[in-house]
Design a protein around this nucleic acid. Structure first.
Length: 802
RNA sequence: GCCGCUGUGGUGGAAUGGUAGACACUAGGGACUUAAAAUCCCUUGGACAUUAGUCCGUGCUGGUUCGAGUCCAGCCAGCGGCACCA
């Protein structure tokens, strides 16, 4: 009676053995060939691991195992991004304090990860919501504050009056609260910012060096949005107010006939004070602000404005100043000078009958006439002919830019500047479940850092953690007392917490540290292990986490705390697993529960199937019956190795084996596990015909080890292998042995396949051609025709042109 | 609107410019079985022909090439990101 393949038994057995023998524990100092493979850590939400988790974590685990067998000292850690909304929402819905419920959820997740069979070193896990972690989040804030990279400013936040809470942009759906459907309004609150803009240029420049997907680099580039232009100087007529205006197209500065100012501009109320239509302008500002707050704002439909009654002095004359809905406060200076040569300005001027002045026309006379008659907007055409300024008359828009910039500078009207679309990072959150910002205010309201010795600056627990509007932390009597005791009477705490993206902006360093150490990360270890060699995670973080982590790393480098300015040398985005062609979601009722399948088929088979669906970068579409393929493969492999009477290695098997090694190695290196698995299937199919010898069996098991770790250990043990298969050396192939003795050569006539023949692999070109001519079916096509050309591709193909 | 990616059988997907559809799934047929499951064997892009073979076929239209899923140009469709940025 043969033993049956029993995944749950095998998997439990090997998980226990790995743990007992501490196979995956990493000694940072002893490691000789460090390889840091990091996967974006999960947040505990209270739900069980879903298919996405299994895909995102089990596949990189296979990759890490592959690298380990190739001789790398692989550090592949796992932690928990435990602060933030998902954990807080879970706590609110269950009525359990977040610290407690998060602890429980993390415990459950760890058990599930163990069931997955991942090679995580659990002695080095981390949890961002623990005091020994958030101490460093707060430390980071203090350093930012110290280096003047943190500041306070009033800003509008998304406010839901239903939930009485501030919402993140992601929680606002079409202007409404994702939970209670109430209209969102913008509410001004004082927020802490970090100066990401300060690093905009470096964030852009460094992209060149990174081994990242091109599309992600482009996304970041667009997000940073570098733009070169000029600032023009303005003075408001009959007033002392002066300001500057940014223009990225200075070529047409002579066309400027009016200016617009953003409704949120701080100078605006002063400018309109006492003006005839002051009330009209104020009403307009209110209306636009409200409309913008609904997030339903549409540029074309909602293009509107009102004249302020003021004029600004410019070289082209006195320009009327309008308040306009389309002017953006947080780009440039909040004021725009407008001209006929801009689509939006043009539309606005037409709507309100504002005079326009053409300074550039198309070459074609008819078209030029139309443009002069303001029939349409002529903009940014390299072939446009300049009319003004006089010195540039007749030159083309496309080549005149540099000279005009010099001219403007010389005339003293403006000077060149670089603008970025990237905004400073608002890190304040009016939430309970996060790292408390380590700031206190003196009786005059001035901000002071909490000295490092008081870190971790603990989250108070004497509060209602459900959201009320202000940070729940404001209610804490304990925190108030604590502050007065340390700093003195009348001092008050900052009650906001930090964005969870702060926690995850430096975790790559904290994995390398131990609790109780006096620095963020020990210098020698950091230098040896950073940057991360392979970083894996979803593309949705391209412009959030991946910018923040880069920014924080750069800042830490400049402060001398770390040795690298880029945290992630290589980046890889996993694809998405869909079901029935759609993203899995409860509302579509197409969610696949991994637990049922793991129960039935085991973790190995489940993992194999996910990898087999397609390249890791592409994800795949889940199919309930598709898993049978990898299941049959696992069973066959088990049967083959367990009960085989090993014989001699046939020539064909030698070739097959060497090819399989080559293919597996190349495909796994590129994270294309689907083709690695199919090559192993092909090899196993080949053994049905050719039989198998012990040597091939051992090699096969090693190749299988990263993909089906438990099964491979079991088979390795059965083969009498020493130690763990995951600790074995990765097989090497012999290039001489991937060529078989006989090859099939295809014959084409005029590019169409007409036959083939068998030949020795060393066949000479002239023999191949003469044999090709002799192929029965080929004869039919070349007979009676003159052969114009004969092409031979070695060992593969003969092609005739007749 | 701008930027990027992707289009291959019934399905997931393979193919350094060189035999399109590897490897699987599904479906159909058969073997074993009292039966089912499991397992094994055969067929499985379409049409004609059923021995040989021929024609068509990788979103569409062209181009380069002896030869194009692959390279180039233009279009169409789907997905993702950004979106009043002066």
């Amino acid at each position: 009676m043969q033993p049956e393949f029993n995944p749950s038994e095998i998997e439990a057995k090997w998980q226990k053995k790995w743990e007992e023998k501490k196979v995956y524990e990493m000694d940072f100092k002893k490691a000789k060939d460090p390889y840091y493979c990091l996967v974006m850590f999960p947040y505990p939400s209270g739900a069980r691991l879903h298919v996405g988790h299994w895909y995102m974590y089990s596949v990189p685990d296979s990759f890490s195992r592959f690298q380990k067998m190739r001789g790398k000292d692989v550090f592949h850690p796992m932690g928990f991004d435990a602060f933030g909304l998902p954990a807080e929402n879970f706590a609110i819905s269950t009525g359990t304090p977040p610290a407690e419920s998060t602890e429980g959820n993390v415990g459950v997740m760890i058990e599930q990860f163990k069931r997955m069979g991942c090679m995580y070193d659990w002695s080095k896990t981390l949890n961002t919501s623990k005091p020994d972690y958030y101490k460093w989040t707060q430390w980071l804030f203090l350093k930012m504050f110290e280096k003047d990279l943190a500041y306070r400013k009033d800003a509008n936040v998304n406010w839901c009056s239903g939930c009485k809470t501030v919402l993140a942009n992601e929680q606002v759906w079409e202007g409404k609260c994702e939970r209670c459907d109430t209209d969102i309004i913008l509410k001004p609150m004082t927020q802490w910012y970090w100066k990401t803009k300060e690093y905009a240029q470096k964030l852009l420049d460094n992209l060149e060096e990174l081994d990242w997907p091109e599309k992600t680099k482009i996304m970041q580039k667009n997000w940073i949005g570098r733009s070169e232009g000029m600032n023009f100087k303005f003075k408001v007529k009959d007033s002392d107010v002066e300001f500057e205006v940014y223009d990225s197209v200075p070529q047409t500065f002579r066309a400027q006939t009016f200016a617009v100012i953003a409704p949120e501009h701080p100078l605006l109320t002063e400018l309109i004070k006492g003006q005839e239509n002051e009330q009209e302008v104020l009403d307009f500002i209110e209306r636009v602000k409200k409309k913008k707050a609904t997030k339903k704002y549409n540029f074309e439909e909602d293009l509107e404005g009102v004249f302020t009654g003021r004029y600004v002095e410019f070289v082209t004359g006195d320009l009327p100043l309008w308040v306009a809905s389309f002017a953006v406060m947080d780009y440039g200076t909040g004021i725009v000078n407008c001209s006929v040569h801009d689509e939006r300005d043009f539309a606005f001027a037409k709507k309100y009958d504002i005079p326009l002045h053409v300074v550039m026309v198309p070459e074609d006379e008819k078209e030029a006439k139309k443009v002069k008659n303001l029939e349409y907007c002529f903009t940014k055409d390299p072939d446009g002919i300049m009319l003004e300024p006089e010195e540039f008359k007749g030159r083309r828009w496309g080549e005149v830019r540099g000279d005009i910039i010099k001219y403007i500078e010389k005339e003293g009207i403006g000077y060149p500047v670089v603008q970025y679309r990237l905004r400073d990072w608002t890190i304040s959150r009016q939430r309970y479940w996060g790292s408390l910002i380590p700031i206190v205010y003196d009786p005059d309201g001035k901000a002071h850092p909490v000295p490092e010795e008081h870190l971790p600056w603990k989250i108070p627990i004497d509060v209602e953690f459900k959201p009320t509007g202000t940070s729940p932390i404001a209610e804490s009597k304990e925190l108030k007392k604590r502050v007065e005791k340390i700093f003195g009477k009348g001092w008050t705490p900052e009650v906001d917490t930090m964005d969870t993206f702060v926690c995850s902006s430096f975790y790559q360093f904290r994995f390398l540290a131990e609790n109780g150490q006096k620095e963020l990360v020990p210098k020698t270890v950091e230098k040896k292990w950073m940057p991360v060699d392979m970083y894996i995670g979803g593309p949705e973080h391209a412009c959030m986490h991946l910018i923040y982590a880069r920014f924080v790393t750069m800042a830490l480098k400049d402060m001398g705390h770390v040795s690298v300015d880029e945290p992630f040398q290589k980046l890889f985005h996993q694809g998405l697993i869909t079901h029935k062609g759609a993203k899995m979601s409860k509302s579509k009722d197409n969610v696949v529960s991994p637990d049922d399948f793991v129960e039935k088929y085991g973790s190995d088979v489940f993992r194999l199937y996910m990898m087999f669906m397609g390249p890791f970068a592409d994800g795949g579409d889940w199919n309930d019956t598709g898993i049978k393929g990898p299941d049959r493969f696992a069973k066959k492999a088990y049967k083959k190795i367990i009960q085989s009477k090993f014989g001699e290695q046939s020539k064909a098997l030698t070739v097959g084996l060497n090819r399989t090694i080559k293919k597996c190695t190349e495909e796994m290196e590129a994270l294309r596990f689907n083709t690695a698995i199919s090559s192993l299937m092909e090899f196993l199919n080949l053994t049905e015909k050719e039989g198998i010898d012990k040597d091939s069996a051992e090699t096969f098991v090693k190749l299988l080890a990263p993909l089906a770790p438990h099964l491979a250990e079991e088979l390795w043990e059965n083969l009498g292998g020493k130690g763990f298969v995951v600790e074995q050396e990765w097989p090497k192939f012999d290039p001489k042995l991937i060529q078989s003795d006989m090859v099939t050569i295809a014959v084409q006539v005029n590019g169409k396949l007409r036959g083939d023949f068998e030949a020795g692999s060393g066949i000479l070109e002239k023999d191949a051609i003469s044999q090709a001519k002799a192929v029965e079916n080929v004869k039919r096509f070349i007979e009676g025709n003159k052969i114009k050309k004969e092409i031979y591709v070695e060992g593969k193909l003969v092609s005739f042109v007749v």
